[in-house]
Design a protein around this nucleic acid. Structure first.
Lengths: 372, 372
DNA sequence: CTGAAAGCGCTTACAG
DNA sequence: CTGAAAGCGCTTACAG
């Protein structure tokens, strides 16, 4: 008999309709911004909604309109967390992925879509988890290395899929940036401008398409210029700072003669390499030049500032969403319309800072406020 | 008349049932892992699912089971992006938020929940956007400063809500870490151990509860120890590196005498402060000691390494999800059971590194691989 | 163990 | 402009 204001079940569109003295169809119409309902009706409905604190149920909406207004994003989590409750200090390796997601989300928002994120552990591929998330969204964006090619093909039969920096091919669109051009330019800069004759490339995950391209482009160009480029197992990193540290320590422990310049597969690795070098009293770039790839924000804050290749990370994410959005809307518009592009490649740019041996830029411009 | 394998409409549970020669109820049962269906039946269903590439629709599932298995997370985006298509270099300020989200997501996953993320711009409070997201999930986790207290109260009438580092109070639970204790300890360390007599606190957002507590605790303790603590408008930052830079530049431009130590509201600010100091030829900690708060990964990579207060960021997120999850399940279990805790406070710890004036730790232990 | 049927809360032709 | 009704794709008592 109590009339507490908070019943255990939230108000539905029926409650609103009753309170406003209209049909649920009318409520639905004002909810969706149709210009149908006449002002008087609309106001009554709006009031009822406000009084009741009504929030339309997204699931019901999605079910009847056949659009969830949700896109799923699956990315790779680096280290497990089942280490007794304390979290591994994994975050550094995720900067890249977070930036990518940010780019996706910002553009998605403009289209009324929200992001459903799902990180998967490297060790345990859980196609099952990905299936679940697929059922909760209108389309999927897959970061690199989260699912096998076969798995991607399978899931793509159900929802539109766009991959990021993936191998491309198949039924899904792939968005990436141009690694080859900039790596060749970097090689030229190091060999021609700085005159280094003995260089090396520290690789990222061996199965990363981006890594493969970066390594090959760099080595090819170095060789073409008549210089030496060390590669192979001893130079196999894993995109992490720790990986870079281990490689350098290992080399030094073996008494190897370090190359004059080390190009790393990404900024994280370069960070680790610089550390290991410093720890052994070696100067960057005096003794060994070091370069990265990505141009994450911290690259500018390192001492010496990191020479690297800037990748338009957020734009990649933004582009991926745009392609996916097109696929989603085209899907519902039946007509197979235009096929989604197989691959989109965004431009990159060599950023020359200090770690390659170039002179530092004026201090005043180092840290700008983003806007205004 | 064509029988293309990819119809424009994905298979439903009816298709699976027909193919397996069972009722949709049976399909539903194996989908949900009931032990009902006998092995033979189950296998037929499983095969049909595989052959059809069937993925159950999350919206339909949510609608009938009254559980979406989705939690929403709303966080603050720092800078707008309507600057003509290029993205602002905002990412640094988001490290904290990303870590928080990671903590939430990892624990949520274990409970079969996915994260629906939604960033809101500082400038434009969009309660409307938050309503939409509320309709798409079973519960909401709100970062600090994303919605007014009134807005939070309103939305909490509809879905369970947990706030992060918020002011607490009201019907929602709040999860935060203990800023006061560590800031007092920091003050003692700076004044007692290092003997600094003139210090300052650079504030974060004035309306951030955490910031208020940090500033007050620090200043009170410094005063109690008989030392001087500068505060006020001249020391008002905004949690960003750029904010820290401007404050120091402004002070130096005015010819002010800098304090012997500057405690910053967070690591980002400390990063900016260190930069501005270096840019004017001042040594940290030789001329001015600098400290942060958070202990983000980069704090360890700065030169000098940053003395700061470690906050268990991911654990905060994890805890928030746990509380929310309890509220969600309690909700459906009708009985108002146990009230959710009004506030949960996690412990912090002072991390003494070099920027406060302490000697550097051995180089070898600086960069560890997270696991193994 | 299995199936027929109701119902979750919306949207959207279809009539009026 | 407005309402009655069907239907979106599942889950879940309720019978058998």
């Amino acid at each position: 008999m109590d009339t507490r204001s908070k019943p255990d079940t939230p108000p539905t569109i029926y409650d609103v309709a009753r309170r406003a003295g209209v049909s649920i169809a009318s409520v639905s119409r004002v909810l969706n911004g149709r210009d149908n309902p006449r002002p008087a009706t609309r106001d009554r409905v709006l009031n009822a909604i406000a009084e009741l604190g009504f929030v339309p149920d997204g699931a019901a909406r999605a079910l009847s309109s056949r659009l969830k207004h949700v896109v799923g994003v699956v990315f790779r989590r680096v280290y497990g967390t089942d280490d007794g409750g304390t979290f591994a200090d994994e975050s550094e390796s995720l900067l890249f992925g977070d930036q990518l997601n940010r780019g996706i989300e910002i553009v998605a928002q403009r289209c009324g879509f929200d992001l459903l994120v799902c990180s998967v552990n490297i060790d345990e591929r859980m196609p099952n988890r990905i299936t679940t998330i697929a059922g909760k969204c209108d389309g999927l964006i897959l970061h690199d290395q989260v699912l096998s090619a076969a798995g991607i093909a399978a899931i793509a039969r159900t929802v539109p899929v766009v991959t990021l920096a993936g191998a491309g091919g198949g039924a899904v669109s792939n968005v990436r940036s141009d690694s080859a051009g900039s790596m060749r330019e970097l090689a030229r800069h190091l060999v021609m401008d700085h005159g280094y004759g003995r260089l090396a490339y520290i690789a990222g995950h061996a199965d990363s398409p981006d890594n493969v391209v970066r390594g090959r482009s760099f080595a090819d160009e170095v060789h073409a210029l008549g210089a030496e480029c060390l590669t192979g197992p001893a130079w196999q990193g894993d995109y992490s700072a720790a990986g870079g540290v281990e490689i350098v320590r290992g080399l030094i422990a073996l008494g190897a003669t370090l190359p004059r310049a080390i190009a790393c597969a990404n900024d994280q690795t370069a960070l680790g390499v610089s550390y290991a070098l410093a720890e052994h009293g070696l100067d960057v770039p005096g003794d060994v030049a070091v370069t990265g790839f990505d141009d994450l924000p911290f690259a500018r804050h390192l001492r010496p500032q990191l020479t690297t290749v800037r990748q338009p990370i957020q734009e990649i994410g933004a582009k991926a969403f745009e392609v996916l959005h097109t696929m989603i809307t085209a899907d519902s518009a039946s007509a197979d319309a235009t096929e989604p592009p197989a691959e989109i490649v965004l431009p990159t740019r060599l950023i020359r800072r200090e770690s390659c041996g170039c002179p530092p830029e004026p201090a005043a411009s180092r840290l700008r406020r983003p806007i205004g």
